[in-house]
Structures are given as C-alpha cells and as structure tokens.
Write a protein that binds this DNA or RNA. Structure first.
Lengths: 204, 204
DNA sequence: ATAATTGGTGTACCTTAGTACATTAAGCGG
DNA sequence: CCGCTTAATGTACTAAGGTACACCAATTAT
C-alpha cells in the first residue's frame, strides 16, 4: 500500500472518528474546520489523493466517503482490528510491518487494557492441556511484562512460540502444556513479545 | 418500545441497508426514490415519527441519521449478533425467547452455513481434552443433525450439555472429553439442539 | 539551485439536502 | 358516520455540500 502523508493520515483518522461519533462521515467543510484549513478544495485534494492511493472510496454525493483500508476503518464498538502475524522475519520485532499478514477483527471484549494487540495462528500441539489447539487464533497483548503462569508469546532464535511462563527458585523457563514436550530453559537472546489474552477457534 | 408502522419499519431497514452497502446513511430523496414516494416531506414525517418513538436520532445535517434501536441497526460485515443462552426453562426449546439472556456479537467468520446460531457459556470441565474449558463461549449452529464425532449441544432432562456425539455399532452416545467422566447413553427424551462451530475464550 | 510535490487560499457555480406549509386521501376506531 | 391517524403530493426557500479553476508558498528530491 502506498505511503500517505501526515495530513492524509490525519484526514483518515478524522473521518473514522466522525463515523464512530455521529454515525456518518463528515463533509469537506467539517473536515476543513477540524484541521484549521479555510478551503474545502484543499480537503478535496487530500481526499482525491487518498482515493488514488487506495485508502478511500468517494461517491459524488453528500458525505459520500468510505474508508477501505482496515487499518484506518472506523472502530466498531464490538470489535477491534488487530494485525495477524505470519512468518516472523529475522531481526525484526514481532509487530514490524514486515510480519503483518493482514488485519483481522477480534471481539473488543478481549481488550481489557491499553496497548497494542496482535493475533497469531497457533502452530503445533504443545499447549493442548491449556486448551490451545493447532490452528487456534490466540489474541495477544503486546507486552514484555508477564507474570508467573501467564501464557506468553516468546521469541527464541527468531522463532515465535506460545508457552506458559514459569518461575521456580529464581529461574525462569517456558513450560509446554503437553507432557510430550520438554520445558524450555532459554539461553542466549530471547524475549517475551506478548501475553495471551484470548482465543478464537473455528470448528468444522 | 413503541410500535412502529409498516412503512416506518421499511424506512429503518432501508437506512440500515444503505449504511451496510455504501457506508453512509441515505438522504430523504434517496429514501423517497426507494419507496416510490414523490415527496421528501413524507419521508421527513416518517423520520420524525421514528425519532419521537426512540428508534432514530437525527442531526440537522446532510444524511444525519443514526439508528439507535439495536434490532434495526446496520449489520456489521465482520460480526453477527446471536442470542446468549442462559438457564434453560423446562419444556422450552433452547432458542425460546425465555432462555435468551442477551444478544452478543460474534465473529462472522464462524458462520459458514445458513441457519440460526446461539452462544452458550460452558459449565464444567467435561470437555477439556477437546480444548473446551469452563467459562469458554461456544458458538452453536442450531440444528438437530450432527455427525459422528461432532461436538454437540444436547438437551437431556431439560439440562443443557456439551459433548461429543459418538456412534458405535449402531448405538449413539455422548462422550465426555475428560477421562474423569463417563459416557452418556441417553435414555428417555433427549435431543440434539445444535452443533458447536466455534469457541471464544477470554484469558485473564 | 531547480523542479516537483505537498499543502493551502480564494472565488465561483451548481446541485443536493433539509425544512416548512398548505392540502388531499385512505384507513381505522369509536 | 365522524373524527383521528396515517400516508402522501406539491410548492417553496435556504443553506449545505461537492466540484472546479487560478494562484501562491513551503518542503522535498534531484
């Protein structure tokens, strides 16, 4: 997706906020007022640029604006759009743009604290005794602070893993919740990327 | 909530559809066109009646309409509103109005077939080996047709239970997925109320 | 240093959009 | 049968709303 300028981003955010607050998009005059711009035509040029870059659709009708990029779409009061993390590139933090496959909606009820969230498709069966199965979607609060027994997303040697964080006699390790797997006592560089706060499963 | 006339209901549905399709509410002229009415003022009178009855909010701005009754709110393309079933009253089918605690939004991705759906909070730990834990929310397609090994919601002696449906040598039984529980060979009246198609878990 | 891009102002025009009033007709309830 | 409610038409007015063009300034890239 093409880059947008600071002012264009501001316009997208204002359109979304207007829809969230009032239920309908703003007019060009309303956008101009909010951005301390006197000319509706300046707003029109920004909007036309956003249309050309694929962030907006515009109908020739009053307030005929639609945000089509999910990253900027108006918030729904029942859901939040979070990045779905795919393959993690070496050397990048997990929420680097490179790792984002797409954005997906998740139930807003899972968001209990401020901060950034992401979703991750579970690979493997190491956590089945915690009720986390292969292909489940775990919802993760992006934080490096977790407590004993929290289920965390960790990064070891550029590999993403979901495990229970344990501390015993001052030693921290990652516990699988499947007796077929050993605990992991990380050496070298590793980090907690987030804490699992929810799970979504589709059953066929 | 006050009753509305047939034409008023039609207006609410058209407004919702316009928002779903185009992302913004219709103008009075657009509503008039869709209802084969020549006069915008007729539309205005219907709208004012809906405002007075508490179904709509109206701003004095172009397309300044907001549906405030959830029953008529525009559908969100990422979520569906389904009834959350609480205590099940004796002698009533599970989706009887009496059993509905409230409506909750669930991810639309779980809806793969036509039909009715409901949500159920899991009680007990009889299904933990299927990754279904206490307090999980299972999403259920309301059907009495299920196949071997499907996870179903059954009604036995007016009790709701979630179990795996098994058929062995022509005999049907309900299998717990926890070795601490026996299989159930239902006698007397029992029925399948639905098939589990999804699960949502919040983790604290 | 220059050209291109981004960002904006001011003016103008036309259509849309909401609002208001007078009026008529059909249906329903008492 | 009458009165009330619902449903609609027609006309008019004003402001909002979108679109277009000429022009200017600052920033960024070459």
């Amino acid at each position: 997706m093409k880059n947008i300028t600071k002012r264009q981003k501001e316009i997208l955010q204002l359109i979304a906020k207007n829809i969230e607050d009032k239920g309908y998009p703003p007019s060009y005059q309303e956008l101009a007022n909010q951005m301390n711009i006197k000319s509706k035509f300046a707003i029109l040029k920004h909007i036309d640029a956003l249309v050309a870059k694929g962030y907006l659709e515009k109908d020739s009708a009053a307030r005929g604006l639609r945000i089509i990029d999910p990253q900027y779409a108006p918030a729904n009061k029942n859901e939040v759009s979070v990045p779905l993390i795919g393959r993690v590139a070496a050397g990048f933090p997990i929420l680097a743009q490179e790792n984002v496959e797409r954005y997906i909606p998740i139930p807003r009820a899972m968001i209990k604290a401020e901060g950034r969230y992401f979703a991750l498709k579970v690979r493997g069966d190491s956590m089945i005794n915690a009720g986390i199965f292969e292909d489940d979607l775990v919802i993760v609060n992006s934080t490096n602070m977790a407590r004993n027994r929290d289920i965390v997303v960790a990064l070891l040697h550029d590999e993403v893993t979901v495990k229970r964080l344990m501390t015993d006699r001052g030693q921290t390790f990652l516990k699988a919740e499947n007796p077929n797997y050993d605990n992991i006592y990380p050496e070298g560089e590793w980090s907690i990327q987030g804490k699992v706060v929810g799970l979504v499963r589709e059953i066929n």
